[in-house]
Design a protein around this nucleic acid. Structure first.
Lengths: 357, 357
DNA sequence: AAAGTTTGCTAAAACGCTTGATCAGGTGAT
DNA sequence: ATCACCTGATCAAGCGTTTTAGCAAACTTT
């Protein structure tokens, strides 16, 4: 039963309070209500500059649209335009970290800015799900796909991904054609170290991760570069390694204490969190006895440790945004390799100027 | 729609390695390649039982599909079928908490199970963005919209939301027609308290939040119910209040210690985290000197505190899943009010059996 | 007043797909 | 032979838009 009465002519006051959940109102219905052709309605809806429509007609159409509560059917629009207004985003761990959320957020904002909607699929590392997800996106004829991982790593490009334009986000592949955007780990490592340097620390330990990753190499290199820039010789002995989580950080306490440093830069915030525990157990106070910086800026942790942790932020939002820009070809063409995104420093209270000895 | 074809008969060697990024292959092209009508192709693609197609033709079609790398155009399918295969999910804080991620995850899994894709928009609390997001979903003629918030609260229903089917997820509205699914805070509070009770604790403090919320009332009521069930009189004096974050928990330490309790149930994990710090400073050990349970099961925190925190899990995944089930009318009709989702207990090591005095 | 121009609008094709109606040819029963 | 009935496929309409070409009427020019 599709009966909707509405006074035409008099700008009926009634808001679109029909029984909803009925078939959506179509262009044709608007046209009939306004007593014009569908072409005309389309023209006014899309505000075509080239079209010549009298003010009177335009008004009738607008009234009809309002009375009926018309919404264009985006799928029909996509169909005729030949290109969809979708960008796909496949993420491997939406549920397990807030990081994915920020990538989504960034991608979304940027996509919307250009009139695209985001089609998201979350695979939680399941290969089959991933294939299905990509297939789904392909069937929706997405403009392109953002393939993102929750931590920075090398990945291989699923076959079906190649059927579309794509950009790797927070990951990369050796493959020639694979565009990618990743955080600038080296710069981040440099920044982290510089925070300490800036406060007068010279003897700085670095607790690196045990497990191989671009972050492991990059953050170490950044550390060395920062030291270098200050003319401080790199001391291999000041670099510890531990599993990159709380336990690891906690466990590294003892070794760290033997190093006789005034500051320590942790591979990530979780290690810093563990280290906090270890240090506290030893009766040491942060930042007075030892300054600590982390990496990742994992909000729940970093901002709420006691004292709040100075750290370097992983630019997930920017990663997402840059990803869609790259996909859309909006970024100035990159030289070679993945585009590197800047990791900003977030200073809180775990670092204090070193009291002159 | 996720259709998967696989090689039939001679596995023709050529993989779909065309120059991609070209116009997608259409049904018509497949039909021409196979020398049949589009109707035929459609019939074999959709495996119509009622259609009579010879094996030979079927094979020719499959070959053509494979050679051309055909993917159905989901939007065209949606158009003709009259109903889209989208479910919208608007979230207010995808970026700031992992919680939203779990809602998404749950919604996604359930939606896919029923052949729906998830259209996600993240509003970060911005009303205008929200309106746009809903408009977008309406234009894609979504089957319905899940309106979710990152913490359990009352909300009002945006006008445009009413243009579609919708269910509120993790929030609720007084409005009669508004279906909703929320966590069962009372049961959660009961469970949290029961963990302590089960270990022999009888004198249990509850550090509640200062800010009003369904959780505040529910978790308190659960606490009372659990005590009641054990015949322990409710002692108003054992209920503290603090701002529900680390600082709040930390700050509550002093007052807590005056209570002479053997266990404490915190409004949430973040307070527990702060309390850990406070307790440690007083030289108290968890769980030996005092047992602690939290609420929320915020992974980054709860699982990695020292000792790992026993807590009650907020069922975000289930919330998302139940949301789409409700939207799709798959759940047995509810009585009245929001559907309440069970909050499971997660026992870790912050509670130990009370040594008999 | 005839010719040209502008204005305001519409007809109709196209986008990629689904599906009920239809049809040509073959088979089996009468 | 005739009829009825399968079988295997095709025709064509239609989903909700956009857009180009075109048309009638009104308005300018000469």
């Amino acid at each position: 039963m599709i009966s909707q009465e509405n006074a035409s002519g008099t700008p009926s006051a009634a808001a679109p309070q029909q029984t909803r959940r009925a078939q959506p109102v179509t262009l044709r219905q608007v046209a009939e209500a306004a007593g014009v052709s569908t072409a005309t309605v389309s023209l006014v809806v899309n505000k075509k500059k080239t079209a010549r429509i009298s003010d009177e007609t335009r008004k009738r159409v607008h009234d009809a649209i309002r009375d009926l509560g018309y919404r264009p059917n985006a799928m029909a629009q996509n169909l005729v335009s030949g290109s969809s207004r979708f960008i796909g985003l496949v993420a491997d761990a939406i549920a397990t970290t807030p990081f994915a959320g920020q990538i989504i957020h960034g991608a979304q904002d940027e996509a919307w800015k250009h009139g695209y909607a985001l089609l998201i699929a979350n695979t939680e590392g399941n290969r089959e799900l991933e294939t299905d997800a990509i297939a789904m996106m392909l069937e929706y004829k997405v403009r392109g796909i953002l393939y993102s991982t929750w931590f920075h790593r090398a990945t291989d490009v699923p076959d079906s991904l190649r059927e579309s334009d794509f950009v790797l986000v927070n990951c990369f592949a050796e493959e020639p054609g694979a565009r990618a955007v990743v955080p600038d780990e080296v710069q981040g490592g440099r920044s982290a170290t510089e925070v300490l340097l800036k406060h007068g620390h010279r003897r700085i330990a670095f607790i690196n991760a045990t497990i191989p990753a671009p972050a492991k190499d990059g953050r170490l290199q950044g550390y060395r570069e920062a030291l270098d820039a200050e003319g401080i010789p790199f001391d291999e002995g000041l670099v510890l390694e531990a599993y990159p989580d709380q336990e690891g950080g906690y466990g590294a306490t003892e070794a760290l204490l033997k190093l006789d440093v005034t500051a320590v830069y942790c591979y990530n915030d979780r290690m810093a969190m563990g280290l906090y525990d270890g240090l506290r157990e030893q009766g040491l106070s942060i930042p007075d006895d030892i300054a600590v910086v982390g990496f990742d800026n994992q909000e729940v942790i970093a901002a709420h440790l006691r004292p709040p942790l100075s750290t370097v932020s992983l630019p997930h939002y920017e990663l997402g945004a840059a990803g869609v820009r790259m996909l859309l070809g909006l970024d100035e063409a990159q030289g070679h390799g993945p585009e590197k995104i800047y990791c900003p420093t977030v200073e809180r209270n775990s670092v204090r100027a070193l009291a002159p000895a």
